Amino acid sequence: MSPVENPVPLLAGGTKQRLSRDLVLSAALALVDAEGLDALTMRRLGQELGRDPMSLYRYAENRAALLDGVSELVFNELAIVPDDPDWQVQLRRIAHDLRRLALRHPNVVPLLVTRPLSTPLGLRPLGTLRPLEQILALLIDAGFAPADALHVYRAYYGYLYGHILNELQEFVVDPDEHEALLRLGLHRLPAKDFPRLRALAPVLADYDGMAELDEGITILLSGLASRLSLPSCPTGS
């Protein structure tokens, strides 16, 4: 069991800091970072904070509210600059910022990806909806029709989440092995059936998450820019 670092900040004189929503959620995030989502319960969080678990219900009515609050806390670290008109530069920067957040809080990623699916859009925590609102505004101001801006957002985040999940799951059989086929275990695949995959072993073994994300974002943004430059086509054409 990994210790949670500094879950209860102390004031001068060694007294405990007064409970607040921010303190409770920060401790919840620290617990998830250290031990995973399953460790986050009211009882365990109370232990980390040195408080009666019942006192936490003032700041989160149940575990579901805690999970929503942790999601908001992480999303609040994602900076979107509404006054920057360069939508391509912004989307590229946001993508890299989200990747850094995911690498900093890998245990929270499944929550960010799957938690919204359990809640209707209008009932989700406001902090989790702000990136959607801000990116829609950015794209609409850039010239996308509102419906197209929503399609772009969905494609963009679909790609980002897919990339992040793939990167966090990257695994090699033997990291000390220099031969790419052996390092990835691809030598076990029948050469006749998987010639292209085996041939890509050096590229697969030299995986660079940041470069891979940037390459994918370049492809995505190039396609979106082309779409923006085209006149609207009549339905059915």
Rank of each mutant, 00 (worst) to 15 (best):
A205K: 04
E177P: 00
G13E: 09
V113Y: 07
M210T: 11
M54H: 14
I219Q: 11
L136G: 03
N76G: 04
R63T: 06
L121M: 15
G158N: 15
R198S: 04
T235H: 08
F144A: 15
E177Y: 01
L117Y: 03
G122H: 08
G236H: 02
L31H: 07
A155N: 08
G13S: 13
H151W: 14
P53W: 07
L184S: 04
A145K: 03
P202W: 02
D38P: 05
D214A: 13
R44L: 10
G209L: 09
G143Q: 03
R63S: 07
P7G: 14
L150M: 10
R104D: 13
A39R: 01
E77Q: 13
R100P: 04
V70W: 12
N107G: 06
L228R: 00
A201C: 07
A205Y: 01
L121R: 07
D33W: 13
R99E: 10
V74Q: 08
P125Y: 08
P106C: 15
Q88N: 06
N62R: 03
F194E: 12
V74R: 02
S226Y: 15
R196T: 14
P195M: 11
P234N: 12
R18W: 09
H178C: 11
Y156A: 11
T114I: 15
Y57P: 12
A137F: 00
R104N: 07
S55E: 15
L165S: 11
L213E: 13
R44S: 07
A79K: 01
G185H: 00
V113N: 06
A225I: 09
T218V: 10
R51I: 01
V4N: 04
Y161R: 12
G223S: 03
E5W: 14
I140N: 02
A34F: 02
A12Y: 08
V173T: 02
E167M: 11
R44N: 12
L136F: 13
H178F: 05
R198A: 11
L29H: 03
L101I: 01
A65C: 08
L29I: 05
P195D: 02
P125H: 08
T235G: 04
A211G: 06
G162F: 12
G14K: 04
L49N: 11
Q17A: 15
P7L: 14
S71H: 13
A102V: 10
Q88A: 15
V32T: 09
A180R: 09
S71I: 00
L182Q: 02
A205N: 00
L111T: 04
V172G: 00
K16W: 09
A30F: 04
P131S: 09
G122Y: 12
N76W: 04
